[in-house]
Design a protein around this nucleic acid. Sequence first.
DNA 1: GCTTTACATAAAATCAATTCCTGTAAAGAC
DNA 2: GTCTTTACAGGAATTGATTTTATGTAAAGC
Lengths: 180, 180
Amino acid sequence: MSDITELLLDAAADLLAARGFHGLRMIEVASRAGVSRQTVYNEFGNKEGLVQAVAAHQTEEYLSGIVTRLKEDPDPWEAMRSAFRYTFERTEKDRLVSAVLTGQDAEDLLPFLTIRGHPVLFHATEVVERHLSEHFPGRHVRLTAETTVRLALSHLLMPSGDLDSAIDAVVRVARATLEA
Amino acid sequence: MSDITELLLDAAADLLAARGFHGLRMIEVASRAGVSRQTVYNEFGNKEGLVQAVAAHQTEEYLSGIVTRLKEDPDPWEAMRSAFRYTFERTEKDRLVSAVLTGQDAEDLLPFLTIRGHPVLFHATEVVERHLSEHFPGRHVRLTAETTVRLALSHLLMPSGDLDSAIDAVVRVARATLEA
DNA sequence: GCTTTACATAAAATCAATTCCTGTAAAGAC
DNA sequence: GTCTTTACAGGAATTGATTTTATGTAAAGC
């Protein structure tokens, strides 16, 4: 990815978070990145293409963050806790990330933020599944992964209590499901 | 509840489903119920009051349906399956019920459809908790009930596969959690 | 207890004039 | 060659004045 492309994606992400899809101006993206409006069109075709690229970029970055955290801790459940905490903290900090992951609060952004009707966060299911099957080979790990992601998303959208209790709840259910 | 009140609630529910909060006309509600506009104001104060009453009414009706189904079957897990199926079928059939339960797709209706930031469906948590503690006294049943409702809502909002697999998935997780 | 009529106020729809933004294209600068 | 500048057509959004429509309240009557 070229240098300018990255600048444009960052600028667009900022502006998208601040003003939403509707309020996003191509000329503003361009000037923030220090290039002309034309360059943006050369790079992404049109506004839709730009926003798609932003969404894809954010998703990728988030998922690589998850993978990192899942690999960091030798204890699979601690690793999961860390991945959760990362997810929650990221969505709290960054309105755009939140929209990308959950598909909520996204104004007219929603069309870009779902894959086959599911929020982008569901991509994480595969990552979690791989993580679990590495630590618990032989187990049928699918249900646990899917449940985990669904519950995480649920707590993201409808928090109850503090973050640590939410994480505890999800992990307890995950362990029970896996060990059943 | 008076006879006319019920007619009004039904008329309002229909119109709310058809036109949304914004498109709901007090005079239309009145004429559908065969009364004057004034009667509606006498009964519910204003439009907001009317819609609140509709939401409360739908919620109550749904929850009583859940209780019935939970008590019908002696096998607690079969009973739960039945309650689920009822929930899914109701939200499929009735756009308004769906909005009331999930808090989604609700136009400017949302303010009426949440309790402390949670979709109305969360009311079902208490019902499920009571159900479980009757069948499994002594167990700490809270986490299972909450998980169950969260997963049900998740499958309601983001279906994957057919209804029966969804029900199976939720029940399997619920059993594992309870028996952990 | 419900209806009719009346009314003030606020909200929404309408519409013409205008401005702004998108998307494309061509010519020029570094 | 990549980016910029300039130009432009068409559509979308904004503005403001105007009119219509709905809400909410009140009073009188059946």
